[in-house]
């Protein structure tokens, strides 16, 4: 078919990254694009290039002031970061103390997942690799905590999959990448369970 079989009923991790890159994130710009109100004498000399975007708001980008936090889409932030034109403000949950709280919660409540944002794994991975110098805590420690969280949650997923059935499954607070990794397995098994279940016809079941 025109779509390769691997992509027919799921996303690739790169597509998940693409989805997450559309989310807003705070940055410290290192340059100013805001035009001074006064000073008509400059207007003839400098015709400044403006951001004209169709899929993201260009208004904040045209009003950047150095060292004043602004919210922009993650993909723009990463592009600017790459050129050294901004530093990214790490989200509140990406700190050692906060991650440790999540880990404690995960360990205490074996029946549920902690309320990490839906894109935590992807955002953490992107910031570790592309904005490691902007994080509040040393990257290797943060990496360790994120890995801990991931493994605790993976083992919980393994526990949860013992209760697969033909009708439903509740996955509160499971992130997009984790769901995406599970999807082929869970869908395959649940569909087969449904097939097996449906092989008994309804009307004869009442006898």
């Amino acid at each position: 078919m025109s779509l390769p079989w691997k992509l027919q009923e799921t996303f690739s991790p790169e597509e998940i990254q693409f989805i997450v890159e559309n989310e807003p994130i705070k940055i410290f710009p290192r340059f100013t694009t805001k035009q001074p109100v006064r000073g008509n004498q400059q207007s003839n000399s400098s015709v400044q290039t403006r951001w004209k975007l169709l899929t993201a708001k260009d208004e904040p980008l045209n009003n950047l002031v150095a060292i004043q936090t602004t919210e922009v889409a993650l993909w723009i932030a990463l592009l600017l970061k790459q050129q050294g034109k901004c530093s990214i403000v790490a989200p509140g949950w990406l700190r050692l103390a906060q991650l440790q709280k999540y880990i404690d919660y995960e360990l205490k409540n074996t029946g549920r997942f902690s309320e990490l944002p839906w894109n935590w794994l992807v955002v953490a991975q992107l910031l570790f690799s592309k904005a490691a110098d902007d994080l509040h805590d040393p990257v290797h420690l943060l990496r360790g905590k994120v890995q801990d969280l991931r493994e605790i949650r993976l083992s919980k997923i393994g526990q949860g999959l013992k209760h697969l059935n033909e009708s439903h499954l509740q996955l509160d607070n499971l992130s997009l990448l984790e769901i995406n990794e599970l999807r082929p397995f869970v869908l395959g098994v649940m569909n087969k369970l449904k097939d097996i279940h449906n092989s008994i016809s309804e009307d004869q079941e009442e006898d």
Partner: peptide, 8 residues
């Protein structure tokens, strides 16, 4: 099932 989930 194995192939798909392993790939994923």
């Amino acid at each position: 099932i194995y192939r798909n989930s392993h790939e994923s």
